[in-house]
Design a binder for these strands. Sequence first.
RNA 1: GGGUUCGUAGCUCAAUGGUGGAGCAACCGGCUGUUAACCGGAAGGCUGUUGGUUCAAGUCCAACCGUGCCCGCCA
Length: 507
Amino acid sequence: MHQYISGLSAHEGQQATLKGWVYNMRVSKTNIFIELRDGSGFLQCVISLDEVGEEAFESAKRLSREASLSLTGEVIKDEKQIGGYELRVTSFEIYGQSPEFPIQANETVHGVRHLADRRHLWLRSKRQWAIMRVRNRVIMAIHEFFQEEGFVQMDAPIFTGNACEGTTDLFETDFFGQPAYISQSGQLYGEAMAMAQGKIYTFGPTFRAEKSNTPRHLAEFWMIEPEMAFYTNEMNMDLIEKFARFVVNSCLEKCKVELETLGRDTSRLEMVNKPFPRVSYDDSIKILRGEMDVEGKNAIAVQEKDLADAKVAIEEKKADIEAREKAIKAGMKKGPRKFNESKILALRSEIADLEELCRNIPGWIESAANFKHGEDFGDSDEKLLTRVFDAPVMVYNWPTKVKAFYMKEVDGDPDYVKGVDLLAPDGFGEIVGGSERETDLDVLLRKIKEHDLPMEEFEWYLDLRRFGSVPHSGFGLGLERMVRWVCDIHHLRETIPFPRRYGRLLP
RNA sequence: GGGUUCGUAGCUCAAUGGUGGAGCAACCGGCUGUUAACCGGAAGGCUGUUGGUUCAAGUCCAACCGUGCCCGCCA
């Protein structure tokens, strides 16, 4: 029986056997330092010449990154080490060598293409390890929350005959000789299941055939869709807030090591413990246009300040580069020179990012200032809006035109529906979309016609209104978007083990 | 689908139109209780493809192929 790094503190001062892979190693004359990873964590193992003898020591020198082995030795407390412990190896056995592993220990030196082509190996990198463990925590927290709240987990089908909301492009496939679609949402089925169990949630894969090429789209992703009988949209919002707070706090509590590995500023996540502001669509537009301030903050002015700050930062970084280049030219030993050269490279890439920001902000401001009532928010609009709040924001009461047919109209005002979007702060944008559902059969019949949807395919759905129709609400959460926010990852492709998106089917 | 950036060594990047360089990785040697970054050596290239301008093209022009980023669509 072997031990795992995560549970090693229980074996302090004792013998233990670990099995894993070489994440990184350093060789000296009498010691070999192996940074071992075993899936549960990372730990330094020291193979010393005195302990293992010359022959074994020589074979250990031939190890390389990602070689697999088992190591036996004494567990020693060492405050200097990352996990607080190290293993003094007395014997080891090599399973598999790993010559010329194509991804360096510092994965950030690689370009995205190189890494994406090697996703099956990239997953072994420290950052990816941390992200996947946060993903696991998010998934488990979601189940914990809903199970605790009395929800029943039920699955919507993946093959469907209808195009649900009728807007998005679906993947078409052959279902025993007849055309079928791969599900883009379990929403309508969720409603049927909620009428059977009261409170349910689905948790499954979802597919969108849009040729979207952005950091926040995948062709295949995982969605969680709770649906609650006898819930109004206000109750829906209460639940969304409680839910998001629970999931994020669970990650903060149980993924400290992972979030630290990722360099996540957790104080930004702790914002979830403040009340989530609730803003009507109409008010959110006023904020966007700069016509309404939030606690003294004006959305347009904030952007203008961001732009000015970015410009100043660019000049500072350019001056920094110039000074370093001058110092290098004036003569410098190799060590400091290398340090400064790599610093210059980092500064250049920071400048490139800032310059892009400078190119983008004016467009964002223009888009926000000229925002027309009745439009859906663009990504930049979400960015501007969330920038003035100190917590995730819920925007409710949306124009009927931009939302799906099944959303319930606001009482006495059919131009608006009781939809709600949860926008995460710091530019992460829409995490959750939900609504109270239309309960009136006649209104639904009218909406389905207006949206030009095939009535016969919705007959079963309409039955839900014919037999004991009740007020009900629900929402959908994009798992990867939640993980992206919690981990502060720029691109969704790093939040799922094997991303499927436009132009990417392998590995 | 629209806009834009870029394709140079295995990787990440340099190179006022004038003899293509560096760091990392890999290889060899030295140092070292080290923790991405020690010291030295040698090695690594038809500069994405095709065509054009020029005495001269990695650099300028055109087309194509590929990639990144931004927008649209959404979770």
